[in-house]
Each structure stands twice: as structure tokens, then as C-alpha cells.
């Protein structure tokens, strides 16, 4: 597995983590005693997940000539 393939896997894991963090933050905000910073964190995490998806597409285009092995 080349660095390209490992980077692809790593960014997928980061996207999943960012989505999980967004859900965790929104849950905190919705719970009794939730504060505005939880809402902000959730929005930022969701945007980060979107940004990482865009980056993953850019990365695959840029490295299309490099082997996954």
C-alpha cells in the first residue's frame, strides 16, 4: 500500500470522525443544559467533514497517475 492509499484511508477516517464529532456536539446542544458553543462546534465539525470530502476528491484527481500499491 503506497502513501497515496494510506492517505486516502486516513482522510476517510477523518471524515467519519468529523461527522461523529458533529453528531456528538448537536446531541450536547439538544440535551438539557446544552450551551451555544456545542452548536458552534457541531456546525464547524460538519463544515470540516464537508471540507475533507472536497479535499479527498481534489487529492484523488491530483494523484490519479500515482499507484495505490
Amino acid at each position: 500500500m503506497s502513501l497515496k492509499a494510506f492517505h486516502f484511508v486516513f482522510i476517510v477516517a477523518s471524515i467519519l470522525m468529523a461527522c461523529g464529532f458533529a453528531v456528538w456536539s448537536f446531541q450536547n446542544y439538544a440535551a438539557p443544559g446544552g450551551v451555544r458553543s456545542d452548536l458552534v462546534a457541531g456546525i464547524v465539525a460538519a463544515l470540516a467533514a464537508g471540507g475533507l470530502v472536497a479535499y479527498e476528491c481534489y487529492f484523488l484527481r491530483k494523484f490519479k497517475n500515482v499507484s495505490f500499491i
Partner: peptide
């Protein structure tokens, strides 16, 4: 590759 492993552990 090693650096990515270290980063993945943190994730």
C-alpha cells in the same frame, strides 16, 4: 507512512 499511522491512531 509512519506519520500517517501516528495520525490515524490519534483519530
Amino acid at each position: 507512512l509512519f506519520w500517517h499511522f501516528v495520525d490515524l491512531v490519534w483519530i
